[in-house]
Simulated scan of single mutants.
Amino acid sequence: MRLIELLRSASEWSDEDTTIYVAPEWSGNAEAILVTPAPDTTEPVVRDGRRYDYFLETFVAREVIEDYASTAEGAHATEEERCNRLIRYAQDDA
């Protein structure tokens, strides 16, 4: 599943011990998975021969998405803009 598709289901994510991992290079089109329970490390995981890098815990990702949506800029943002904002947060602030 692509990261942008995964973000569409944010309201369905469990807040319990679930982490998003994304295949390099991070973009809305990058392959993404949810890992439950979350590993005790931020080291990459390998699933079906593909490497996925730690991205964010689902509860953090949901909070960032909701906070951005409540701003003037985020209120009218496209899915791609919301996804890019979350990627920037994961790269720069997490």
Rank of each mutant, 00 (worst) to 15 (best):
L3A: 00
I4F: 05
I4K: 15
I4C: 15
E5W: 03
L6N: 03
L6E: 04
L7Y: 03
L7V: 03
L7N: 02
S9P: 04
S9W: 06
A10K: 12
A10E: 11
A10Q: 05
S11I: 06
S11P: 06
E12M: 04
E12H: 10
W13F: 09
W13L: 06
W13S: 01
D17Y: 03
T18I: 08
T18A: 15
T18C: 11
T18D: 07
I20H: 06
I20E: 02
Y21N: 00
Y21I: 01
Y21Q: 01
Y21K: 01
V22D: 01
V22E: 00
A23E: 03
A23F: 03
A23R: 00
P24M: 03
E25T: 14
N29G: 13
N29P: 05
A30S: 03
A30M: 01
E31F: 05
A32G: 04
A32S: 03
A32K: 01
I33Y: 11
I33A: 10
L34F: 11
L34S: 14
L34I: 07
L34N: 07
V35K: 12
T36S: 15
T36R: 15
T36D: 11
T36H: 14
P37G: 04
A38Q: 05
P39R: 00
P39Y: 00
P39L: 00
T41W: 13
P44Y: 03
V45F: 03
V46T: 09
V46G: 06
R47W: 12
R47C: 12
G49S: 01
G49H: 00
R50Q: 15
R51N: 12
Y52G: 02
Y52Q: 03
Y52I: 04
Y54S: 09
Y54W: 13
F55L: 04
F55S: 02
F55V: 02
L56V: 02
L56N: 02
L56D: 07
E57A: 08
T58Q: 11
T58V: 14
T58E: 05
F59H: 12
A61E: 08
A61Y: 05
R62Y: 14
E63T: 14
E66C: 06
D67W: 08
D67C: 06
D67N: 13
D67P: 05
D67F: 05
D67Q: 03
Y68D: 11
A69I: 14
S70G: 10
S70V: 10
S70W: 05
S70K: 12
T71Y: 01
A72Q: 10
A72I: 13
A72H: 08
E73T: 15
E73C: 10
G74H: 06
G74V: 10
A75I: 09
A77L: 13
A77V: 04
E80G: 06
E80V: 13
E80M: 10
E81W: 05
E81Q: 13
E81V: 15
R82C: 10
R82D: 07
N84E: 09
N84G: 08
N84T: 06
N84Q: 15
R85C: 05
R85V: 09
R85N: 13
I87T: 09
Q91S: 08
D92H: 15
D92M: 09
D92R: 11
D93N: 04
A94E: 10
A94V: 08
A94N: 10
